[in-house]
Simulated assay, not measured.
Amino acid sequence: MSTNRHRDAMVRKGRGATFDPRNRFAPTVSEAVDDGWWQEAVPERLATEVRDERTRSALSWNTSPDLPFDRSLNPYRGCEHGCIYCYARPSHAYWDLSPGLDFETRLIARTGLVERLEEELGKPGYVCRPIALSGNTDCYQPLEAERRTTRAILELLLACRHPVSIVTKSALVLRDLDLLRDLAGHRLVRVMVSLTSLDSDLKRTLEPRAASPGARLRAIGTLAEAGVPVGTLVAPVIPGLTDHEMERLLGAAREAGADWAGWTLLRLPREVAPLFEAWLEAHYPERAAKVMSLIRQCRGGLDYDPRFGHRMRGQGVFADLLEQRFRAACRRLGLNAPATSEAMRLDTTAFRPPRAQGDLFD
C-alpha cells in the first residue's frame, strides 16, 4: 500500500505514523475532500494530549502459549515513543481512537491503578506469579516522568515481595534504580531493554521518541553494575532493514552487561501493516518493496500470520536463518547460559499479600 492512497499522509518530526487510519469500530466514516474553501494548513507538529481514566481492574490476563507470563500491567494506553511497528497500536481503537497518530499523541493515563492492584493482590486465592510490566505499552514512556505510576507500582510490589519483569526501551528506568536494586536483592525483578538498531538515523524515524541506542546500552550497563538481572530483546527484527544488525546488537548488549537475550520477528497485525508500509514509502522508498517481500516470505505470503507458534518467529527459509544466526551469536557471546537462566528466575515463595485495603504501608 503506497502512501499516496492517504490524502492526509505526512511525515511529522518526532512522530512515527504518517496518517490516522479509520477506527475499525466506528459506525460511520468521514473522508476529507479538498473543495478549495478550507485554507488552514495541516500542522507539521502535533502536541501530546493526555486524559485520565479511572481504573476498574489492574491486571490483564492471557493464556497465550507464545508468552512467558499469564498476567500483565499497563499504566498507560497509547505510547509517545511512537514506534511505527508497535503491535499494540490496534488496541487504541477500543478507546474510540485511531491506531495511527492518535496512538502516540492522544494518551490515556490510568488513575487509581495502584489501589486496584493492591485490592487484587489481596484477594483470597490469589496465586503469585511474575507480573509483566509493559505487556502492551512502555511503562517508562515520557509520561511516566510526570505521573510516576510505574514507580508507585514497584513500591507496592516490593512491599508485597511480588516478582515483576520489565520490558522497556527508555533510559528512564534508571530513575528507579534504588527500587530495582532492592527488588533484585530478593530475586523479584528482571529487566529487558529492547534494541532494534544501532543506527541513530534509522532510530529517529523508526522509534522517534524512544531512547537512543547508546542510552539503552548505558542503561543495561548501569543495571548490571547495580546487580539487577538484565537482558536484551532484539525486537522486532525487520527483514531487509535491521536484520543485518542482529549479531552487532547482541554483541553490544553483551559488552554492556546483558546476560540474556531474546528476539522476535516484526509483527504487523491489523492497522499496523498499512501504517508500516506507508512509513517505508515515506522514509525508505527504495527498500519498501524488498522489505515487504521478505516479510511476506516469513508470513506465508501475508503481511501477518497470527497463529500461535508462528507470530513471534515466522516461518520459511529466511525466518529459520534468523533463528540460526541468533542461536549461534548467543553461543559465541555466552548469552543465555544455564546459570544465567537460573539467575533470571524470579522468586514467588516470599509473596505476602496486603493485609487489607489501604493498610499495606501502615
Rank of each mutant, 00 (worst) to 15 (best):
G214K: 13
V127L: 12
A278M: 01
L172Q: 15
L188Q: 12
S30W: 12
A356K: 13
M192G: 00
E207C: 05
R148Q: 14
P306L: 05
E80K: 07
R129F: 06
P90R: 03
T348Q: 08
Q357R: 13
E247Y: 07
R22L: 15
I166D: 02
V291K: 08
E286N: 06
F361G: 10
R71K: 06
R151E: 15
R161I: 00
R355W: 12
C298N: 01
S194Y: 03
R204E: 15
F19C: 02
I131D: 07
L179T: 09
N4E: 11
A219F: 01
L233T: 09
R54K: 13
I295W: 01
G100N: 04
Y87S: 12
A339P: 01
V193W: 02
H186K: 09
V42L: 15
S212I: 05
D305Q: 08
S98M: 01
V193Y: 04
L233V: 07
A273H: 10
A256K: 02
D35K: 10
R15F: 07
R313C: 03
L335W: 07
R147T: 12
A215Q: 15
D178C: 00
L177F: 00
V230R: 02
T137C: 08
P208Q: 05
V33Q: 14
V234F: 11
P65A: 09
I131W: 01
H92A: 10
A152C: 06
R71F: 02
R332K: 14
M10K: 15
R187V: 04
Y87V: 14
D70T: 10
G36P: 13
P43M: 08
D34L: 05
R218C: 01
N336K: 07
G251W: 04
R299Y: 06
I108W: 03
Y284R: 12
R175H: 10
T242K: 04
R5M: 03
